[in-house]
Design a protein around this nucleic acid. Structure first.
Lengths: 217, 217
DNA sequence: ATTACTAGTTTCCGAGTAA
DNA sequence: TTTACTCGGAAACTAGTAA
C-alpha cells in the first residue's frame, strides 16, 4: 500500500501527537473523494499504522510507532538518493568562453539582481569551466537544489532569460555559479561570477584545474 | 501517479546519470510483474519524468530534471516531517522509579551490552525523569530515530526484553536514554544510565528540572 | 455536518501473444 | 532473452444511501 495517505497525515499534524481531521478535509489533502479518504483511514488503522478515535464531528488520528517507522524508512531512501547532494563540488578546467559572459553580467537587468541577491557587484566577466565527466552528473544534481533565481527581462530589442545562481567558493574565494535557464545551454560547462577577477586572484589560465565547492544553507 | 517507480529508478542508479535496466529487473524492484513494470516506464516517459532508449536487450533510462524535481519535492516533504528531529531535547523532572533500574542494569545480559555498545560501565541505577507534556511527543519521535539496540535474553527463570538506547548528554555529562521495548511501558518517563551517579554529579533530587540532549551522528 | 456501507463504473494488474 | 500489445479478472474509485 502506498505511503501517501500516511505521509499526508504526518504533514497535517506534528508527528508523534494526534491530529483532528475529518474525511472531507483529508480528502482534500489526498485530492480524492471523502469516501476514499475514509476508506484509507480504515485501511491505515487495519495495518496498525495509525490509531483513531471516531467522533461525531470527525476523528482523532495518531500515527503509531509502526507508522512512523514506515515513514522513516521512506525518508531514509530519499536521503540515499539526495544525501550526497549536501556536499557538492565540481572540478574542471578553466577555458575561454565566447566572451559573452562579460556582456551579460554588465547588463543592468542582471547586475542589479546580482547585487541584491548575491550581495556583491560582479567583476565584469565570467570564469568558464569545462567540467570533468564526473562533475557533469554532479551538475545535474545541482540543478534541483535550491538556487537563487535571477528573473529574466526585456530591454525593448530582445529578451533575456532567467538564470539559476548558486553560491560557491573557488579556492576560498566567494562567488557564484550561474546557469542560464536556456534550452540547449551546454551541460559540460559552468560559469562563475565573483566580485574580483578570478583569473588574476587565483593565478589561473586556460587549462588550469579548479575546484568549485557549493555553499550550503 | 505514485512516485514509487521513479524513486526506485533513482535508487537503482546514480541520480543524474542514466541507468541500464530491463523491465524484468525493474519489476523485481517494484515487486510486480514485468508487464506492469514495462507500462510504468512508458507512463513515466509519457509524463516527461524520464527519457529512455529502448534497446534489444533492455533499456537505458535517464531521469529528467522534471523527474528529479518531483523526487526532490517529495524529499522536502519528508524533511518537513522529520527535520526537527535533528535537534532533540527532552525536559522533565527527576523522580523516583520503582527501584527496578538498578536491578536491570546490573544484569549480566544487559551489562555487557552496555559496555560493548555504549563504551562505559553504567553506574548501578537509573535516573528517572518524568517528562514535560511537550517532551512526551518528542519522546515519540525519538523512538523512530536510529538507536543502539540491546538484545533481549533469558536466564532460565524468565526472559528479559530488548531495549532501545540513545546516546545523550545531561548537563554535559555523557550517558544514554534507555527505553525498554515493552508494551505498556509508560510514555511519560525516560530512564538515564551513565558511568557515574547522576544524582550526585548533577546535584539533583526529586523534583529537579533537567534537560537531556540527544547526541547525533 | 459526520462515518460507513452498497452499487456501478473505471482503472489497474498480470497472463498470454507477437515481434 | 527483450518490449509492447490484447484481454479477462481483480481491485479501487465515486456516487448514493443510511445512521
Amino acid at each position: 500500500m502506498s505511503l501517501e495517505p500516511l505521509k499526508q497525515l504526518a504533514l497535517a499534524g506534528d508527528i508523534g501527537s494526534s491530529v483532528a481531521i475529518s474525511s472531507a478535509k483529508f480528502a482534500q489533502r489526498l485530492k480524492t473523494s471523502p469516501q476514499t479518504a475514509s476508506r484509507k483511514l480504515q485501511a491505515l488503522e487495519e495495518e496498525n499504522l495509525i490509531t483513531r478515535k471516531v467522533l461525531s464531528n470527525g476523528q482523532e488520528v495518531t500515527i503509531t510507532e509502526e507508522g512512523m517507522l514506515a515513514l522513516w524508512k521512506e525518508y531514509r531512501e530519499y536521503q540515499q538518493i539526495f544525501g550526497e547532494i549536501e556536499d557538492l563540488r565540481l572540478t574542471g578546467l578553466v577555458c575561454t568562453g565566447l566572451g559573452e559572459g562579460r556582456y551579460y553580467v554588465m547588463l543592468e537587468g542582471y547586475l542589479r539582481q546580482f547585487e541584491q541577491k548575491l550581495g556583491f557587484t560582479p567583476y565584469p566577466g565570467t570564469l568558464n569551466i569545462e567540467l570533468s565527466p564526473h562533475s557533469i552528473t554532479t551538475r545535474k544534481k545541482l540543478q534541483i537544489t535550491d538556487n537563487i533565481p535571477l528573473i529574466g527581462f526585456e530591454d525593448g530589442e530582445r529578451t533575456f532569460g532567467s538564470v539559476k545562481c548558486f553560491r560557491a567558493r573557488i579556492n576560498d574565494l566567494h562567488g557564484a555559479i550561474i546557469i542560464p535557464n536556456r534550452k540547449n545551454y551546454p551541460d559540460n560547462v559552468v560559469e562563475i561570477v565573483a566580485p574580483v577577477n578570478l583569473r588574476e586572484h587565483l593565478s589561473v589560465s586556460d587549462g588550469s584545474e579548479v575546484e568549485v565547492v557549493l555553499c550550503r544553507a
